[in-house]
Design a protein around this nucleic acid. Structure first.
Lengths: 231, 231
DNA sequence: CGAACGCTTCGGCCTCCGCCGAACGGTCCG
DNA sequence: CGGACCGTTCGGCGGAGGCCGAAGCGTTCG
């Protein structure tokens, strides 16, 4: 059964949680170092090293050596498409199935890091607010920050002039909300600023973030976002 | 890492060879019984039962009870698309990687069953011959047998009048040749007839088929196909 | 009704593989 | 050159899960 074996080989690579996390972290096309990926996947560097070797061997990732770092990225857009199609199944799998609601699950649906930017109800609400006020516009291929948006975000404390190679403002479909939130440099800056302001705080060993009392007030005043009462 | 976990869960289902074989066998949308699938995946019925339960639980398959049989099929076209995208990676993985050529591998590339019809160089050559002579036409959505094709295939010994619900003549992209061969009822009939004529013979425990000396002559005379000398 | 058949559940075996601690090359820096 | 990192390889541990034999339901048919 050659065909089945080949297929299974690829799928098995994605079928490990740590490797799936690595692939998801790279799914927007960026290149990250082995250590960064280890942190994101919640595994030690030596474990990550093994996984990365497997992924490179399986032609899912390519690697570029640069100084004492090794940058990993998806080997081709085909990999991204494959991940998307698997994700589509993972998303559809949700509703009909019985899925007990744990507090941790609620937390992660409320607000979380999607690598370096905010996702969950909070992330989507932020995106909605910025779009509604005309500060951001989403297209098919990416998003743009309008002049009023530049002004608004600069006033909020973001340094939008900083040159970065990465996509500036990219929509990213939210897993739990199934609606776009803001990724890219703007999304990362926004998250960092909220963190610096003490509006959000990381919860250890999870991507979920806690919205502080200060944050609750701030998101309401600055963005007009009404958040659920804390669980 | 909820998102990664969900993705990994789905991928892990496909990541087992037996389950991948089951999914591939169902990838053209047909419904097959548990026992048939067990045979196709080279596992015992009780092992297949476990795998099928997992696949149904994971929403990749749906099941219909009918008498004392249970028919399994893909839960949705989305599953098929996912399998295609994983297969695309599996196919691309081939060339650049060092892959020693075993005799078994050669045999399977030369001619094999793709469930119930012929694939490999032989399957593609048959399709090419029929298309070139105007007996078959492939479109995007399916294929048709022309009047001359009906005459030709009937003369060859196929009973094309037999009513079957399944797709009549469907192109199926060949994994090793990356070109279409004939699936559907016509493909199955063709394979069965070649088998009855003693032109091909199954090789035990593999999908590969052996082309007999009689077959070599027959494919040349009837279809104008020149086959490689036997390995 | 009893036998045959399709399919599932149970129990135990065994392999695979993910994980980490420890130790080892490579690169950059003062 | 010595120290700080980045990343890898090695070895041993442990759990998850695939596999099959045996046995148990439900259906069909003679």
């Amino acid at each position: 059964m050659v065909l089945g074996s080949q297929t299974a080989e690829i799928a098995a690579l994605v079928g490990d949680p740590a490797r799936a996390n690595i692939l998801m972290a790279l799914s927007d096309g960026r290149a990250l170092t082995a250590t960064e990926l280890a942190y994101l996947a919640h595994i030690t560097p030596q474990t990550a090293s093994g996984h990365l070797a497997k992924l490179v061997d399986g032609r899912l990732l390519s690697v570029a050596k640069q100084g004492r770092h090794r940058y990993f990225r998806l080997a081709s857009p085909l990999v991204g498409r494959m991940l998307e199609s698997i994700n589509a199944m993972a998303a559809i799998e949700g509703p009909p199935r019985y899925r007990p609601r744990s507090p941790a699950d609620d937390a992660v649906r409320q607000a979380r890091y999607c690598y370096d930017h905010l996702a969950g109800r909070l992330g989507v609400a932020l995106a909605d607010a910025l779009v509604e006020k005309g500060h951001v516009e989403f297209g098919d291929d990416g998003g743009v920050v309008t002049p009023s948006g530049t002004e608004f975000l600069t006033a909020f404390g973001l340094d939008l002039a900083a040159k970065t190679r990465r996509a500036f403002c990219r929509p990213c479909i939210d897993w739990s909300e199934r609606r776009p939130h803001i990724a890219g440099a703007v999304g990362a800056g926004l998250a960092a600023r909220c963190f610096d302001l003490g509006w959000i705080a990381r919860i250890r060993d999870t991507r979920a973030v806690k919205i502080t009392a200060k944050g609750r007030a701030g998101f309401g005043e600055t963005f007009g976002i009404a958040l659920d009462a804390p669980g």
